[in-house]
Design a protein around this nucleic acid. Structure first.
Lengths: 157, 157
DNA sequence: CGCAATTCAATTGCGCACAATCTAATAGCG
DNA sequence: CGCTATTAGATTGTGCGCAATTGAATTGCG
């Protein structure tokens, strides 16, 4: 295959993932409007519903997000009355995030979301699981490649 | 499976796609730095390299982006000297976007990107093609679901 | 102990995504 | 032809994602 054709194939691959991600986002946007959450906020709430109180750093590790993204996001969740943030007592660098009663209660209303999303995909449970595994492998490989090239002189130039 | 468990499974699915998309973005970011392009700008350039001159609307249909995203993006490409924008002569509502000589020349330097991306994924050509097909089916299904629920009273409430 | 290095959050700045609104131009209908 | 509806693009506002910087607290080493 010539370089020319790769350039076209490439567009299809990267574009497909980009488009799928945004399409997913769009469906969540509709379903989450009732809950007053954005999609990334929902992801953060899922982690908090599962693990209870945790630090911003721990949350960032789970979500693969840094403080530049999380700080304002958590501020908005706090403004919405869903979480509270307070400096840790024994290490004042750390900020503990925990659910308010409202935040914990919102979980009940979120329970129906996954089934509706699954229905929207038109995929079965098994197929979704398989896709998830492929995507996770992809992410792992891409992250490794990114950190490889990061240190080098911008790779093959 | 109880609702409780769905909430956890769900996190894994939507999160995996979200993470994969961002990981892809990260690898492109590194490779495209040399070209002075962001990932979405690269996508736009791919379309222009393939199709030559086209209107903002046509570009938006290809990329599934509206003018709110494209207008500033194209302005930046124009500021970088890669494209030119001018009102169409026979329909002054329409803006034609076409490559400058610099923009067309940049294609040569972009030719190596796809192979490097493919290498970073650790996937073979066939596997990539299959993943692309799954993602495209997913996008189609999600778009359909989104437009279905859009008109309804915010679906089952 | 005292000072440098590290760590955690927050902030700033830039760009993308999308909804909503606005303006200008065109199309279409009576 | 004249008026309304539609279309194309730009603009505004909000929120996410990430790089880079800053500031405060803690760790660790001599």
């Amino acid at each position: 295959m010539r370089d020319e054709e790769w350039l076209r194939l490439d567009r299809q691959i990267c574009f497909s993932l980009h488009a799928a991600s945004r399409a997913f986002n769009g469906v969540y946007r509709v379903l989450l409007r009732d809950l007053g959450l954005t999609y990334p906020q929902y992801l953060a709430m899922l982690v908090l519903w599962e693990h209870g109180e945790m630090s911003v750093k721990q949350l960032g590790e789970r979500l693969r997000l840094d403080s530049g993204t999380l700080s304002p996001l958590l501020k908005r969740l706090e403004a919405a009355g869903l979480v509270r943030r307070e400096r840790s007592a024994h290490d004042e660098r750390s900020v503990r995030v925990r659910l308010t009663d409202d935040g914990a209660a919102l979980r009940e209303r979120a329970l129906e979301v996954p089934a509706r999303i699954a229905a929207a995909t038109g995929y079965g449970v098994e197929e979704i699981r398989e896709l998830k595994e492929r995507l996770d492998r992809l992410t792992t490989a891409l992250d490794a490649a990114a950190s490889d090239t990061a240190g080098l002189p911008t790779a093959g130039r």
